[in-house]
């Protein structure tokens, strides 16, 4: 069953290979990718170690975002303390300088707070995640349970459709289906059966 609100590139027809065994899934994805076939995406119920390499995914740039938001926190916490305690209304306690070591803890906490929140926010933005949003791609309702799905464009220069289907079946796919493009609403869902 394909959910109604697919959002993968609507101008492409997509082949989905549905697997039950993560090891053979990983192996097949790697094989398909090494043939030069572009893999649109995979859907798995749990993080499969090594799949990002098998798919040829680049490392996420989120750490840079975390660094930037952390730096903002560092500047923010520092300037808050500087403004309130050193510039605006210095309080002298125990003959301590009005800008000193006692700012370290809050400075640290502010940096951590901004890093964590900034990172989480960037993560949600990057994945286009929002509370209440309908899941965009549910090829199989069990893809969050025990099925793994690989999505591949069917008009691939590197491989023809039947070869690809064979490859998926031989790799251990329990089901292979194709979503053809007939506009947003009226797509069709074709179950491809084994032909060998």
């Amino acid at each position: 069953m394909i959910d109604k609100n697919l959002y993968l590139d609507r101008n492409k027809t997509v082949i989905f290979g549905i697997f039950e065994n993560p090891d053979s899934f990983l192996e097949t994805v790697g094989k398909v990718h090494s043939k030069g076939v572009d893999i649109i995406d995979c859907y798995t119920p749990f993080p499969i170690h090594g799949i990002e390499k098998a798919m040829g995914l680049k490392r996420s740039l989120l750490p840079i975002g975390a660094f930037i938001s952390g730096s903002l926190g560092f500047i923010g916490a520092g300037s808050l303390q500087y403004y309130t305690m050193t510039y605006d209304w210095p309080i002298i306690i125990g003959n301590k300088p009005s800008f000193g070591v006692s700012f370290v803890p809050v400075w640290f906490e502010g940096t951590i707070l901004f890093t964590a929140f900034g990172l989480a926010l960037l993560f949600f933005i990057r994945n286009k995640m929002l509370h209440g949003k309908m899941p965009s791609e549910r090829v199989d309702m069990r893809q969050t349970d025990d099925r793994m799905v690989v999505a591949i464009a069917s008009d691939n220069p590197a491989i023809n459709k039947s070869e690809l289907t064979d490859m998926l079946f031989n790799g251990g796919a329990v089901e292979v289906k194709e979503r053809t493009n007939h506009g947003y609403e009226d797509f069709t869902d074709v179950n491809l059966t084994r032909n060998n």
Binding site: Y43, T44, R126, S136, Q143
Partner: peptide
């Protein structure tokens, strides 16, 4: 939040 289990998301 619209989680699908996409590997790109998992990676991030």
């Amino acid at each position: 939040m619209g989680w699908t289990g996409s590997v790109r998301t998992w990676n991030r």
